[in-house]
Design a protein around this nucleic acid. Sequence first.
DNA 1: CCACGTTTGGAAACTTTAGA
DNA 2: TCTAAAGTTTCCAAACGTGG
Length: 339
Amino acid sequence: MAKKTVEQIATDLNLSITTVRLVLNGKAEYYRISVKTQKKIQDYVDKYGYVINHTARSLKLNKTDTLGLVVPNLSNPFFSALAESLELSCRHKGYQLMICCTYNDPNYEIKLTSSLQARNVDGIFIVPANKDTEAKHLSSLDKPLVFLDRNHHQTTSAGVVSDNKGGGYLLTQSMLTKVKNPIVFFAGLETLAPVKERIEGYIQAIKECGDDKQIIVCHAKNDSVSDGELMISEYIEKYNDIPQNFIASSLPILEGVISLLHQRLGYIPEHINIGAFDEHLMLNFLSNNIWSIKQNDKLIAEKALYMMEQKIANNDYQSENIIVPVELVYRLKQPIKLN
DNA sequence: CCACGTTTGGAAACTTTAGA
DNA sequence: TCTAAAGTTTCCAAACGTGG
């Protein structure tokens, strides 16, 4: 069946385009279109259907009711959770969200954002790869921008991030109450602001504990499972031992670390104390003591969308950087009681 | 310079009402 | 009953950005 345009309906019913449009857009009451006419149009639509042409609408209105989201990837569960929360928030407010992945390629990130702009999205949420790409977006895009997850401290930018330093501090401090040996920090890419901040929190907590504990930070090339594996195999080679306590700066890194331990040993030693950034239900199924920092993706999404709406509504909206609190989740294994 | 399909402000066309 | 005013319903034409 050929799709019907407003014009087609108007022609077939001997009405004007405007009248049909008003009824279709629910403005019939306001413009007091007669019930007879309304019914005529309604019956026609019930029979043949009508799908609005958003391209034409956008052409006229110069807005698409579409927002863009640029994230590094969706395999990191934090980003998929964030994308999902944002998608739900957007849907709730009548926006369609276009989700794009950079796969950690800064050049591709630039291409994606300008491509979104070319498609006339009303605004773009970006998880920027680094300070340079963030600056580039700010200077070359003229759409409202809201940065997520990473704060590179640009004065003019709007952003929503988690309290990463606080999270690192909280996590380390809590582990220290239970742990004797040093805690190793397995970190993703060092240039990423959240990683840096989490390490700062870790170092501060260790310094404050006064036990003269060692600070050990290992860096991976990237925030990926394979680089996590590589990082711990280098650690094992260097220290000729597996770490007794460690913190992973992201879930992909954690996956890499425990996956390599599993490959090498055939199991994950239960005595290892694990600290993780980003919460995941599957952590329930490890037999270790586990502390994890849960980011509030829902709140991040809500704040970010609110900010975006402010920016869309008026150009001189005062940009701000919001820091969203995190939550510590722990799973301390109780010894099994027999009898 | 038109075509695409929609939105928009302004106005035409028609109907009802009030007053004489 | 007639007329003008008021109220109601519908329509017109231009514009949006880009490719052919």
